[in-house]
């Protein structure tokens, strides 16, 4: 029973980061209408920023977090201006391939520049742990989860309580209509895409603390985010939270209870994505 509860708790904590990555992706898909295959690479940039600031300037990742978010917001906005904007009306295939190319480009630039090694960030609270009754939680994990909840709370607050947020949701629901009632759609797109990338970067900083930074670290998170938004249904922002918890917890259960999970855990995960997609396609069939 205790093992079971501990597993559930681990899964729940893990889902915080998933929700951050997936909410960002859902913003890009829902508001801008772009499936951003480079989403994981923005996470990767955030992870490397946290590592660099910590390794060279001794800045704690928790302090560099807002700067990383802001910097990657800028990178995202720039990316939008020079590339994404030009394919908004192009066929979906072109949009997909453009961001796919961008992802390959960024990932391999990092590989050329920084090499394929993983970089870890050391923090004073690395080895700490928290106890809740019989259960125990790693300090960084708890902090990461707390931050994820805070930031997601802020995001949803903005989306549902501010003018900008309402505009974003309006654009997500009806592009033409929003233009007609005087929303500056272009500006909303730019901000939404930037925020989307910024959220990925925040997740990246947390990933750097919990795991490591490497050129390919983003890929697996991006794929999980895809799985989550597909489970939630495209553009469904609240569904993303639930789907993240489902994925995090089920992953934790597999790791704890499936024997020899090590070599197969990746396959299990990809099989899950595959099955989700195929299941949805057949259920959606007429």
């Amino acid at each position: 029973m205790e093992l079971f509860l501990q597993t559930l708790l681990n899964g729940l904590l893990q889902s915080g980061i998933y929700a951050l990555v997936a909410s960002g992706l859902a913003l890009a898909v829902g508001v801008v209408g772009i499936v951003n295959f480079a989403h994981g690479e923005f996470l990767m940039i955030g992870a490397f920023l946290a590592w660099a600031l910590s390794a060279y300037l001794g800045v704690d990742p928790l302090i560099s977090l807002p700067f990383a978010a802001l910097a990657v917001f800028g990178v995202g906005a720039l990316t939008y201006r020079v590339s994404i904007r030009h394919v908004l009306l192009a066929p979906e295939l072109n949009q997909m391939l453009l961001t796919f190319g961008l992802g390959i480009l960024l990932q391999n630039l990092a590989l050329i520049w920084l090499g394929g090694n993983t970089r870890t960030v050391t923090t004073p609270y690395q080895g700490s742990s928290l106890s809740i009754g019989e259960l125990s939680v790693g300090g960084p994990k708890a902090i990461a989860f707390g931050l994820a909840v805070l930031i997601l709370g802020a995001l949803y607050g903005v989306l549902y309580r501010t003018t900008l947020g309402r505009q974003m949701r309006a654009v997500a629901q009806n592009r033409r209509g929003s233009q007609l009632i005087g929303i500056d759609v272009e500006r909303v797109y730019l901000i939404a895409f930037g925020v989307s990338c910024g959220l990925a970067a925040i997740a990246g900083v947390l990933v750097a603390v919990l795991l490591f930074a490497s050129p390919t670290v983003g890929l697996v998170f991006a794929l999980k985010a895809f799985a989550i938004i597909v489970m939630a249904g495209l553009g469904n922002l609240t569904g993303v939270l639930w789907a993240s918890v489902v994925l995090g917890v089920s992953e934790a259960l597999v790791q704890t209870y499936v024997p020899g999970g090590g070599g197969w855990s990746d396959a299990v995960f990809f099989l899950l994505i595959f099955a989700t997609l195929v299941f949805r396609s057949f259920r959606g069939a007429r």
């Binding site: 499936v35 295959f37 979906e92 295939l93 997909m96 796919f100 794929l223 895809f226 597909v230 070599g263 197969w264 990746d266 396959a267 990809f270 099989l271 994505i273 595959f274 997609l277 195929v278 949805r280 396609s281 057949f282 959606g284 069939a285």
Partner: peptide, 24 residues
């Protein structure tokens, strides 16, 4: 199994398939 998928769904499903084959 990917008969009814298109666009990004098809792309991701095929990507996942490759990983499954590799792991096997």
């Amino acid at each position: 199994v990917t008969m009814r998928l298109s666009g990004m769904y098809f792309a991701i499903a095929t990507l996942a398939f490759t990983e499954v084959v590799r792991t096997i």
